[in-house]
Amino acid sequence: MSTDVVAIHNVSKIFDGGDNRVVALDNVSVTIAKGEMVAIMGPSGSGKSTLMTIIGLLDVPTSGTYLLDGIETSVLDRTAQAGVRNQKLGFIFQNFNLLPRLSALQNVALPMVYARVSVSEREARAKAALEAVGLGNRLNNRPNELSGGQKQRVAIARALVNNPAILLADEPTGALDSRTGHEIMALFRQLNREQGITVVVVTHDAEVGKQMDRIVSLRDGQLNMEALHEYYGINTDDLGRVVTEVPHVG
């Protein structure tokens, strides 16, 4: 067993809507090692969102295999998928997706509700998670009483609270101003350094992409490095630090 948290092999996703058959992912293979920070980039319709939903077990591939932290996902039923999402994945969304009627603490505790964690432990862990993202003084505020950056921090605390294998963020800075966006990215980097957590970010933002260890670039459902330069002006040669994904051959 490798240390790859994500091992996607020859995955295709085809949306068959009768007359318009859309190949969202065409035979893609990607691996992400434990502790890596990876950006998934590509223009609209490139398949990057589809790839994220497959990594996040929110959808299943039409063909190919996907091992998540060593678990063969194709054999999981709906209940088992829910369990894996609960235990292995932490989601962060562009629009935060906090439940408006719940306080920050209750929002963060929610994944533990579905993990059948006791009330007292839930509260303690949720509180610690909020403190870790700098919101120890906002425990009982509802989302509409928080700023955008604070909401995203609550979402991050919620994503981390069950100690997942991967933090999966979909345009995490998309709804934030650039300064707040930087803070959120810095928080990801800090979590990655301090806790070794694997971070996968789907983004349109070249600045966000450049801050990651590696960029997976997609175009028309296939891995494509040229698109990175074409769409985002990122010259792979300029990115000394960035190790780009080599398109899968064969």
Partner: peptide, 16 residues
């Protein structure tokens, strides 16, 4: 519907 989606993403099963 979105709330249901969020809950499912966070690990709620169909039964939950």
């Amino acid at each position: 519907t979105r709330e249901i989606g969020v809950r499912k993403a966070l690990g709620a099963t169909d039964r939950d």
